[in-house]
Write a protein that binds this DNA or RNA. Structure first.
Lengths: 117, 117
DNA sequence: TTCATTGTACTATTTGAACTAGTACAACTA
DNA sequence: TAGTTGTACTAGTTCAAATAGTACAATGAA
């Protein structure tokens, strides 16, 4: 798996791994159900600690982008749309909270939608 | 000025000051144009460092809740609606960004608004 | 001027969380 | 049993946030 890490930047390694995997999935270089490197394997090839990779994989799993099968390995999700669905729900949730705040300030939903068009 | 600080909590002192002033303004205990304690005065009565108060006042000023007049003192804003306006703009901006993200995922504005009703 | 007050600016210290690593464990399968 | 997988726990390091110490600058009143 072709992952580039920039050790000079402030962006944490685990975050760069997440971004790289997301990128490869978006570009369809990584395909649904495809196995990706084991935690140890990737850690070794990047010369970093397995726990750093694990952290990245945990995040990717929370985002429904990958699935880890204990003692078997880690795979790109069968249905990658689940990742999109999860992200959509997260964003809708965020917006709903902000709308509540705006309503507390006296705006109606109609007024809010109007400002957003 | 009646400000309660809880030193046992994790919330930074400067943040508690911001919240307290906001609360007092909301309750109209502090009124537009009213002078509030000087940085030193409040620092002294809370037994904390002036810079901690300054940090809180800086934030309150950025939120347009107070106005500081150098060598004169610090006052509640003449027009407290400016604070609300600033907050509204901030929230609308946040939502617009989230909508852009959702559009990248393929949703139209109509679909998004529908989920928010 | 002089003095007391105001806000401001700089640096120093401390504390805590984020990040990464070391190492050992547990489960599966060939 | 041996070799792989993911997992869990602890420890060290680094960095930024939070707070404090102290000195400076501007205003206005005595």
């Amino acid at each position: 798996m072709l992952i580039n890490i920039d050790y000079g930047t402030r962006i944490p390694i685990y975050e760069q791994i997440v971004l790289e995997v997301e990128r490869l999935v978006t570009l369809e270089i990584l395909k649904p159900n495809e196995q990706i490197p084991s935690i140890r394997e990737l850690a070794c090839s990047l010369s970093i600690n397995p726990n750093t990779v694990k952290k990245a994989y945990d995040i990717l799993e929370a985002k429904k982008i990958i699935v880890t099968k204990s003692t078997k390995g880690t795979y790109i999700s069968e249905n990658i749309d689940n990742a999109k669905k999860a992200k959509k729900e997260m964003l809708i949730g965020k917006i709903k909270n902000d709308i509540l705040e705006l309503e507390k300030l006296g705006l109606s939903k109609e007024e809010i939608f109007k400002s957003l068009k």
